[in-house]
Design a protein around this nucleic acid. Structure first.
Lengths: 232, 232
DNA sequence: TTGACAAACGGAACACTGTTCCGTAATGTA
DNA sequence: TACATTACGGAACAGTGTTCCGTTTGTCAA
């Protein structure tokens, strides 16, 4: 996952011409196939479309995930760089955050299956997962810190968690007309909001109904033994 | 996917004794393996642990998803039946909804990888996906309708969409200590809330900052050409 | 131009899925 | 006990990502 783009210690020449050509072809073909068939296209199909052998793919991209990362590297970078710009443009850090999150959602939701594969667990895609979060979570943290300081949102939510939540909400977007990821992300971001900026924080016990909107967020663990481990 | 539990037209006898025994063993073994290894365990491993051949697994459960559905059928049923009970118990439909959603989250989040696999797309798991949503979405609709009528939440959100969103947020829960699905679901549910129950609905153009919390939800499509289809 | 050699290629092979198929074995009835 | 039916077991199939290694090719020095 490290330095896929950079030439590795040019001993004689930078890189053989055919290697450069093949790598570029692979990136182009993969980008095109990701659009038409989703990021789940098999390595074999990418290789075939590019007119190279499977071994060539793995020579340039040690893992399928590395190829995906390389294809979307620029877009992730663009999204990350938009962070400070938006933060400076808006008087309200919350508004800037909402705008930036939409940027991220638009990126994820328009790539078939990208969000599906961005989840951790599958060790093969951990690299992809880490790359996106390592690059974007710090940007998000800036938004959150500013918004908390301005009293616009409740404290206690971490950027990593929020980004993963947004990413998860994007799963399946574009394949199901009855599922609108953007709408749900809006819901999530709205839930972040501290309704009355200078209200007293509610630190009482189990929150109910009316007060649910204004307390800070903390983990609470399982509270419902109603459904326990038991087979049907 | 239809009537896995029910005996299929008992012509001579209900079912052979060894078949009954094997089916029960498979359900028990699968339930145990789902807890220890997650729902991703291979069919071969389940068969081996149960001491039967692979063919036997597929005889009783035409698909891996069918086995998963069968294992969790009772719990899904319990969750569905809890709906009306909670709705009757709380004066606030919103509070009841919040409680019920937590029930659902507790169910999903404690099953390794169940949420991961509940997403559509993979045709093999469409059955699982449909089963959960078909059973639970109507229950959720009752909550939402009541809450909207009581003026507690904004209209415009569909039960199917909300359930899928909650399900998506549960993906990866339990495998990552830095990701708390419950906290994010709380955020999502909080975002549902109409802050001032009898406030005028904001129907202005692009909402910003302060007013973002009280408008109804509608799809808005892509609005950010900043990140477009282009390779890195 | 030619030789030499590292770099790159291609694709068979491996390990792993879920699923199908069919010859064989066990079961319950007459 | 004889027999029809039901169920079993596991090899085989189609698919995946990845590894490995014999062969080809590009490049630079002589």
């Amino acid at each position: 996952m490290t330095d896929i783009d950079a030439p590795s210690a040019p001993r004689i020449s930078a890189q053989r011409a055919d290697a450069q050509r093949n790598k570029q072809t692979l990136l182009d073909v993969a980008a095109a196939l990701f659009v038409t068939s989703g990021v789940e296209v098999s390595v074999r199909e990418i290789a075939a479309q590019a007119g190279v052998g499977i071994g060539t793919v793995y020579r340039h991209f040690p893992t399928r995930a590395d190829l995906i990362i390389a294809v979307y590297r620029h877009q992730v970078e663009t999204c990350a760089e938009a962070g400070p710009v938006l933060l400076a443009r808006y008087a309200s850090p919350y508004a800037a955050l909402a705008e930036w999150i939409q940027l991220f959602v638009d990126f994820l939701a328009t790539k078939h299956g990208l969000a599906d594969v961005m989840q951790p667990g599958d060790p093969s895609f951990d690299a992809l997962h880490r790359h996106l979060l390592d690059r974007l979570a710090p940007v998000c943290t800036a938004f959150l810190d500013a918004a908390v300081e301005a009293g616009e949102i409740r404290p206690g939510i971490q950027a990593y968690e929020l980004m993963r939540g947004v990413g998860n909400l994007c799963i399946g977007a574009g394949t199901d007309p009855h599922y609108d990821a953007r709408r749900l992300v809006d819901l999530l971001i709205a839930g972040l909001r501290r309704v009355n900026p200078h209200a007293q924080v509610d630190t009482g016990d189990e929150p109910r109904g009316e007060e649910v909107c204004n307390r800070p967020f903390q983990s609470r663990g399982n509270r419902h033994p109603l459904i326990s481990r038991k087979r049907g």
